[in-house]
Design a protein around this nucleic acid. Structure first.
Lengths: 233, 233
DNA sequence: TATGTTTGCGTAAATAATACGCATTTAAAA
DNA sequence: TTTTAAATGCGTATTATTTACGCAAACATA
């Protein structure tokens, strides 16, 4: 008799799934990655990538796996968003969904429409179709969380190429937070944190007009972060 | 054939439970409500109140129900904390736990040791015994969240009697945040938000030395809150 | 009545946020 | 080439906000 059998307490059980809300940033626009459902229910409707939790993986791994299987995106920083448990949120029966959200550099994930079963596509936030299940609600919550978080943690850098200009970074913040920031004050503040590494020398002949390139000093940030440092925009 | 049968996708399923991390504030001390486990596994060890999710309730209702059944506490403001999904976190088998945390006025919930099956008891934060399952980890996360949240939302008022003095309120913040605040500056700031109602007239002959009593203007706070108001200490 | 504690109000100094001027650089138009 | 428009980079004055702390009044207790 193993541990499980020794104590096992039978019960009707809900199914457990994960869903991934993937934000990508591209040319001044925040986009969202969606999958067209190939099966009922909600066949043909758009939904977040996700799927059932396997018995030998935790939810983080499940979200990463499903994301990779359905969109080819891997090794991204994902974070648990919220767990949705309404009784009737899935017509197939009782399904509990642990939602995650992630931030990717859209430029690295040009999703080509349609592999076999599922079609993945980026949608500008202003043109999101009606979503399957309660995914509209999940999206609202994810957006709120994203905005709340980016205002005091430098997760935004995940959304840019490794080397970026200050205006690109500012544009990112303005897009996500939906505010206008003063160019010169933004520059002053962001540089004052001393988390940007000047990359000017190594980038030549790029498309931008004589722009100065920076990269994010992740190591330094993690050090500061441990000491409770607060990075506020 | 009903909706569920039509689409049902069988799968091995983890059990789903909720756990409640209940903080209470009492005389300058933050306390934690724990239950002594009556059954294996971890029989005799202390753990958070909680239990299995029923098929006809969502996780919020489940947490409220379990909390009431095991401790008699009801109608508290609970908030989802995080969902714990490690494969081996419960020796009985695969169990996913949706953790909640709540804030109660300890004075209203003098838990008397032991009803039939379960013994509930308040523990000062500095004297928490070794907990069952991965509840140590859950506690750490709950404490971090509580501190992060109280710093910009007036959830602290839930922890005080309806009428309280400014020093009591300050003491609450100092206890939870583990900081020292300047008496006069705290007063200035908290009053500037205009969320406290002067209750001086209606309270007479109380124990405190000529103290001034206030109550929290919840209605006003909710109005401001909707408009994105940020209440920072 | 004396004493220690707590409350309530004010103000000065330090720090941070905001607004914005202006010279320089660059890409593209004339 | 020259001009123009846009974007970069640095500075500074103004305004808020935070922090530190002095001191009088109210009160309970001795």
């Amino acid at each position: 008799m193993n541990e499980q059998q020794k104590y096992c307490y039978e019960y009707p059980r809900p199914a457990v799934t994960t869903d991934c809300v993937i934000f990508g940033f591209d040319e001044g626009e925040l986009k969202l990655l969606l999958i067209e459902r190939a099966l009922e229910p909600f066949k043909g409707r758009w939904a977040f990538p996700g799927g059932f939790l396997n018995m030998n993986e935790n939810a983080d791994d499940c979200a990463q796996r499903e994301l990779f299987e359905e969109t080819g995106i891997e090794n991204v920083f994902i974070e648990q968003l919220y767990t949705f448990t309404d009784v009737d949120r899935d017509p197939r029966g009782r399904v509990v969904t642990i939602a995650y959200y992630a931030l990717v550099k859209l430029s690295e994930y040009k999703v080509t429409a349609g592999d076999d079963a599922k079609k993945a596509q980026w949608f500008p936030l202003s043109q999101i179709p009606t979503l399957a299940f309660d995914h509209d609600r999940i999206l609202r919550i994810a957006l709120t969380r994203l905005r709340g978080k980016i205002a005091y943690q430098p997760i935004g850098f995940e959304l840019l190429p490794e080397k970026f200009t200050l205006p690109e970074l500012q544009n990112l913040y303005e897009t996500i937070l939906e505010v206008q920031l003063d160019r010169r004050n933004f520059r002053k503040k962001i540089l004052s944190y001393d988390l940007l590494i000047d990359q000017n020398q190594s980038v030549t002949g790029v498309a931008h007009k004589g722009a100065k390139y920076y990269s994010f000093d992740k190591k330094k940030y993690e050090e500061l972060s441990k000491r409770g440092f607060n990075f506020e925009i």
